[in-house]
Amino acid sequence: MVQRILFLHGAGLQPGPGGNPVLEAVRRQWPDADLVTPDLPSPENPDPELWQEAIGRAVRAIPDEPWVIVGHSLGGSEALRFLCNRIPTLLQRVVTVAAPCWCPEHPDWNERGFALPPTVGRTLADLEIVVVHAEDDDVVPSTHARCLAEQLPSAELVLLPSGGHLPTSWTDRGLIA
């Protein structure tokens, strides 16, 4: 039973309460979990270092009990980047949803500050990671999920036929224990 979920939003204008379908689907599927939802700084113009600092503060505030990270879009790729430097104790699983893969294979997504290190596959090999993406995502193409899965060979790749950039059907698949 998941007791705590750290939800990391993506970049761009953030919807008001109840406005992020991914967050609301997580809330509905795991109603008894304490859902931690930090505001990551300047989402319209994200700074990689400021996001890492904010994620670090949120992680340090989590009590010593089993927990899970769900990161949507940039929140997912930034969660992975954070974990390359420190894997917190009692972290059970990471679920990225529609996360971009910042690498040369995606020239429009080649911002060096957000890129994962080349050692990401080895560094995170013992961590349970699920990469969720919808085939019809028109913001971050599903090729990004395949790229992340190549970089993270121990990750489970879940490709959904639909859901766009805000897929929610994954929540009923038991991907968070």
Rank of each mutant, 00 (worst) to 15 (best):
L50F: 11
L50I: 10
W51C: 07
W51E: 11
E53I: 13
E53Y: 09
A54M: 12
G56T: 15
R57P: 00
R57L: 13
R57D: 13
A58W: 11
V59D: 06
V59W: 07
R60P: 01
R60F: 11
A61W: 10
I62P: 03
P63E: 15
D64M: 11
E65P: 04
E65Y: 11
W67N: 06
V68R: 05
I69L: 10
I69E: 06
S73I: 09
S73N: 12
L74F: 03
L74D: 04
G75Q: 11
G75T: 07
G75D: 03
G75L: 09
G76Q: 01
S77H: 10
E78S: 15
E78C: 12
A79E: 06
L80R: 03
L80W: 02
R81Y: 06
R81I: 01
L83N: 00
L83I: 04
L83R: 04
L83W: 01
N85T: 13
N85P: 00
R86H: 15
R86P: 00
P88V: 08
L90K: 15
L90M: 14
L91P: 05
L91S: 01
L91Y: 10
L91M: 10
L91T: 09
Q92R: 14
R93Q: 11
V95F: 02
T96L: 03
V97S: 10
A98M: 08
A98N: 05
A98Y: 00
A98F: 03
A99C: 08
P100A: 00
C101S: 15
C101P: 00
C101D: 13
C101N: 03
C101G: 03
W102M: 07
P104E: 14
H106V: 07
H106W: 13
H106R: 09
H106N: 07
P107T: 03
W109K: 04
N110L: 03
R112S: 07
G113H: 07
G113M: 11
F114N: 05
F114R: 03
A115E: 06
L116H: 00
P117W: 12
P117K: 08
P117F: 12
P118K: 15
P118Q: 14
V120Q: 07
V120E: 05
V120K: 05
V120C: 01
G121S: 04
R122H: 12
R122T: 14
L124F: 00
A125S: 14
D126A: 13
D126I: 10
D126F: 01
D126H: 14
E128F: 00
E128S: 13
V130E: 04
V130F: 10
V130S: 05
V130K: 09
V131Q: 08
V131M: 06
V132R: 10
V132Q: 09
H133K: 12
H133Y: 12
H133S: 10
E135Y: 01
D136E: 10
V139I: 15
V140G: 02
S142L: 00
T143M: 09
H144Q: 07
A145Q: 09
A145M: 03
A145S: 10
L148Q: 02
A149Y: 08
A149T: 04
E150D: 14
L152V: 07
L152P: 04
L152S: 06
P153C: 08
P153E: 12
P153L: 10
S154E: 15
A155H: 13
A155W: 10
